[in-house]
Design a binder for these strands. Sequence first.
DNA 1: AACGTTATTGACTGCTTGGTCTAGAACCGT
DNA 2: ACGGTTCTAGACCAAGCAGTCAATAACGTT
Lengths: 209, 209
Amino acid sequence: MARPRSFDEADVVARAREAFAETGFAGTSLDTLLEATGLARQSLYNAFGGKKELFIRAFLSDTAEAIEAVESIRHGSDSPITRIRAQLVKMAVAHGAAQAPPSLFTKAAVELSARDPEVASTAAAAFETMRTHYAACIAEAQEAGEIDGAADADSLGAFFCAVIEGMGTLGATGIPRATLLDIGFTSLAAIPITELGRARLGTNDGDWS
Amino acid sequence: MARPRSFDEADVVARAREAFAETGFAGTSLDTLLEATGLARQSLYNAFGGKKELFIRAFLSDTAEAIEAVESIRHGSDSPITRIRAQLVKMAVAHGAAQAPPSLFTKAAVELSARDPEVASTAAAAFETMRTHYAACIAEAQEAGEIDGAADADSLGAFFCAVIEGMGTLGATGIPRATLLDIGFTSLAAIPITELGRARLGTNDGDWS
DNA sequence: AACGTTATTGACTGCTTGGTCTAGAACCGT
DNA sequence: ACGGTTCTAGACCAAGCAGTCAATAACGTT
């Protein structure tokens, strides 16, 4: 019936996400965006509506991905406490990569939350969801006897959200990966791990340099 | 010999800091800045050189203040472990204030570290200094018998830097103060506190709602 | 192969940006 | 009160900005 698009919408959003993550919303011009995505001015307006709308698309996409990454700790063949540690390691490695800008999720939350209620509430809701996932995994570990049943799973969940966000900010400044890993392992000490849990984790923290 | 300035330089930097903290570097126009500081265009250029230079001044000023706030935990009449807890509470309260934008220190680190090596290295050095202060306070607590001497003070120092940065990001999104306080208290559990230390802290976490 | 529909192209617009220039005002030491 | 120096005020500038428009190109359907 009509001329088909010469670009993949999801692909454009992904490229826009990279651009916005690097220079932020205000710091990324439309021209930069067009170059990064490869599409023409009017195509961007036809398909997305404008700069702000494309940004929101990219932001929501990144937020969904961040949530998904946390959600993944609820499944897996390893024991729950092991999965928590693995998540901390994964995040430390990701945020400790050289010249890795913070995720768009974090960047948008810091840049725009004060002025844009939509961004703020989306980010806040995302943290709430992440906290739930951590808490569920901790509760599972409690049922498995790896963590003291008296521990407050919700508090620990919020705590891990904060630690990982903190790693993101520190990592953005170029703090070495080893330090971030150290932070991750240190945060594990906030969990009252049982003898069984400790045995499941093993003594080996691994070599992540 | 000549006409004196009609403004206080430090005061202008302070006002600029608020403006930049609210809307970031790229998001704050020179006109906004002039309105916020109350000075005329040329005066800003005479006194500071330009937008970028004023930003750096504000950023450095905020960074120094952030470091000073952490440095303060090394002194005081309370016992070291008590001072650490008080610092966590102070940060949670500060970052949990309604409509409180993140500090310029944090905002600049997230917005510009990827592109501006000066900002990145300044922020990284600031974190290193903060870590040192935390570590020194923890070491003092170890000598006082409040914390297990086997604990790694440096690791705990970096850990608290991350927790507090995380509280800043979460707080920016509007997460309630109570949650931030919860995070602070939870993070305390990562410290191997001795019986004596626990007694010094008391059982009362206080009412901070 | 002709048509209707949609995508692309690039010129264009009005506004905002950071930064400069020039003229005049305010102050201090003498 | 005067002169030298510095500060301030507001007009000014070129470049960059987000967004629009009209003309053209590419496709699927019939």
